Simulated scan of single mutants.
Amino acid sequence: MNVVGLLMTTLVLLPALLSPMVSRTSTWMALMASSIFYSSSYLLLLPIGQRSVAQPGYGICLFQASLVYGAPVLVSFAGWAYVLQLYFGLAMNISTNKMYLLRINIMLLVTPVVMACIMFIVSLAVGAQSPNTVTIDSTRRYCHITSHVPRTTAAILIGLGTAGMMVFEVLLSMHLSRNWVTLKKVTDGEISIFAWYKFGRIIIFTIFPFGAFALNIGGLFSSGTTNDKWNILLPIIPLGAAIIFGSRTDIIYAWKMSYKAEATWNIYEDPKPVCCSCPHCGEEFDTIPGSA
């Protein structure tokens, strides 16, 4: 499931990076990249051949354990940054101030990385101080730390990121509800429908970081052991992100075009998406001619 999640999130991110017909915000791409990192952190032992040994080397085991605790923190704050960028763009209408918008975007991109690094350093410190707590889990899938300190810290940070998402989702829903009529008049209904459509995906995605938070809370009351029933829930974050954000028409269309015989896209033969730019958040969203 982690391999599938890694492949799916990569397939979702690539069109946004390479295709001229798919445009996404920087925080959206950071969210997809964090999901790729999340899956990769659990698969580290596989390509280096350490899953077949009785006990992986201490250094690589500690490194992976630190990644495993930092990855859900990165995803939760990347999700918070994505929601916050949408809030600033739609609710505060600051897109006209490019310098202010650039500073906010930099902050939103840096914050998740900083929080994940804090979690990584805490895990490294605990594992270095108590090497006997660093071990492969009972199902031999990945390394973890049996101490409660990393799980407690991760639960707190994930909880903060998830709570931040929920707070700004409530504020956004209030803003969209109050300004529904105005948005509809100004944009002939296009932006209002687009905003609710996009907002709905974000609300659904919030379930997955919240699930990671619940898993960490559950881990606080466990003895530090894991099992298959527990581990099968871990890949839901990248899988959920890939399904929710990768089902957009323009991404599917970009992959469809890539499999055609032409080496380059011919604007005279193939229908191109009609690109519309949101005047509030600045993000471009695509509609395919003849599609819903």
Rank of each mutant, 00 (worst) to 15 (best):
His148Ser: 12
Asn266Glu: 14
Pro20Met: 03
Gly219Asn: 07
Ser23Met: 09
Trp196Leu: 11
Gly211Asp: 11
Trp255His: 02
Ser76Met: 03
Leu17Glu: 13
Ser123Ile: 00
Lys98Ser: 13
Pro279Thr: 02
Cys275Pro: 03
Tyr100Ile: 12
Ser35Asn: 14
Ser66Glu: 08
Thr96Asn: 15
Leu13Gln: 01
Leu108Asp: 02
Pro289Tyr: 01
Leu102Cys: 08
Val126Thr: 06
Asn132Asp: 15
Ser247Glu: 10
Phe63Thr: 04
Gly224Asn: 09
Glu283His: 09
Cys281Trp: 00
Ile193Tyr: 13
Ser147Glu: 00
Val75Gln: 05
Ile94Asp: 08
Ser223Pro: 06
Ser26His: 06
Ile237Trp: 01
Lys98Glu: 13
Lys256His: 15
Thr249Cys: 09
Ala155Ile: 05
His148Trp: 06
Lys185Phe: 07
Gly224Val: 10
Leu101Gly: 06
Gly79Ser: 13
Pro15Leu: 05
Lys229Leu: 13
Ala154Lys: 08
Leu220Thr: 03
Thr139Trp: 11
Thr249Ala: 14
Val170Ser: 06
Ser41Phe: 07
Ser147Lys: 00
Trp28Glu: 09
Ala65Trp: 00
Thr146Cys: 05
Val53Ala: 09
Cys281Gly: 01
Phe168Asp: 00
Glu284Asn: 07
His280Leu: 15
Asn266Ile: 13
Ser247Val: 09
Tyr42Leu: 08
Thr9Ser: 12
Gly164Tyr: 02
